[in-house]
């Protein structure tokens, strides 16, 4: 048990652990604000994985071949898995799974703005894998060194799986751009629609990101939003060139001096609007998640009843013997 007298010492030990880049584990003492920040961050991340199944999920039944269907299915299943690893990590901080789900459905916890955009054509499936999963990788690789052990370990697992997601997307686009003129047009159209929202995935600019500094000190965030956005652009431009698509940014050019690409500013007012609930698909995403949760209620109840009856029968058998 922690008494108030212990707290300065416990806090000093916590700060020392984090500063030395060692991991904080579930039953360690931690400041309440650290716990709350992590629960919010991990829950938001988990919700994003779960809601993120929807844009691509629509295409599973309409994939053009059995190969593409099997790949897409596996990819969407992985996203469900990522959500579950992360809910598990949040629960090690004392968060309750049902409560997290409720907060998502009631709009009290957020998920990534990117999943509020529609996947209009099958080329979108490729572009989501390439750009959206690509941006997610940029965000997640540094989190493998998050100061919170269970989150860091979940991220290691997630990152291993994400590289399949990005590659299948790129391969899909590679195939399409080597197809007909109409297919090439579909790919370019999808790139035009997803490029800016993908850049917004890194969040508001550093100057407008008030909690970043503390999160960096706690090592639950390892690089600033703008740095990660820049990395993503630098990684992606050569891939776009190789694919033969144009990224819809007239300001995009190589800066010899910086050794990095210059690029335009995303519409951060749009980002705020979409996060605020007014994106193209916000209502649809939550309505669908709510319906899935409610439709699944009888399964959860039946499973619990079955488990209870079996446990009772096992007890009864023990007494009879």
């Amino acid at each position: 048990m922690t008494t108030e007298a212990d707290e300065p010492e416990l806090r000093a030990h916590f700060e020392e652990t984090v500063a030395a880049d060692r991991r904080v584990e579930p039953r360690d003492w931690m400041p309440e604000a650290y716990r709350a920040t992590l629960v919010r961050q991990i829950a938001q991340h988990a919700h994003s994985e779960i809601i993120g199944m929807q844009p691509e999920g629509d295409w599973i039944t309409r994939a053009p071949s059995l190969r593409r269907k099997a790949i897409l299915w596996a990819k969407v299943q992985d996203e469900a898995g990522h959500g579950l690893y992360l809910y598990g990590a949040a629960e090690t901080l004392g968060a309750d799974r049902d409560d997290l789900t409720r907060r998502l459905l009631e709009g009290r916890q957020k998920y990534s703005s990117i999943f509020n955009y529609p996947a209009a054509t099958f080329a979108d499936v490729g572009v989501i894998g390439w750009l959206v999963d690509g941006a997610a990788i940029c965000n997640q690789v540094p989190l493998c060194r998050s100061s919170y052990g269970p989150y860091a370990r979940a991220m290691v697992r997630v990152c291993k799986e994400e590289s399949f997601h990005q590659r299948q997307g790129y391969e899909l686009l590679w195939t399409m751009t080597r197809g007909t003129a109409a297919q090439r047009e579909m790919v370019q159209d999808a790139v035009d629609r997803w490029w800016w929202p993908s850049l917004m995935m890194f969040g508001p600019p550093d100057a407008a990101s008030p909690n970043s500094e503390r999160s960096m000190a706690w090592r639950v965030k390892r690089h600033s939003n703008d740095e990660l956005r820049q990395r993503f652009v630098d990684m992606t431009v050569p891939q776009a060139d190789r694919l033969g698509v144009t990224l819809p940014d007239p300001e995009l050019r190589w800066n010899e001096e910086r050794g990095r690409y210059d690029f335009g500013t995303p519409d951060f007012a749009e980002l705020a609007r979409v996060i605020g609930g007014d994106g193209p698909c916000n209502r649809e995403r939550i309505a669908r998640r709510t319906a899935a949760h409610e439709d699944g209620a009888w399964v959860r109840e039946a499973a619990a009843a079955h488990a209870e009856r079996r446990a009772r029968r096992a007890d009864g058998a023990g007494v009879a013997r």
């Binding site: 579950l84 598990g88 990590a89 629960e91 090690t92 799974r97 619990a304 079955h306």
Partner: peptide, 8 residues
Amino acid sequence: VGSLRAAD
């Protein structure tokens, strides 16, 4: 490797 929820 982690945790999960299940009925039994």
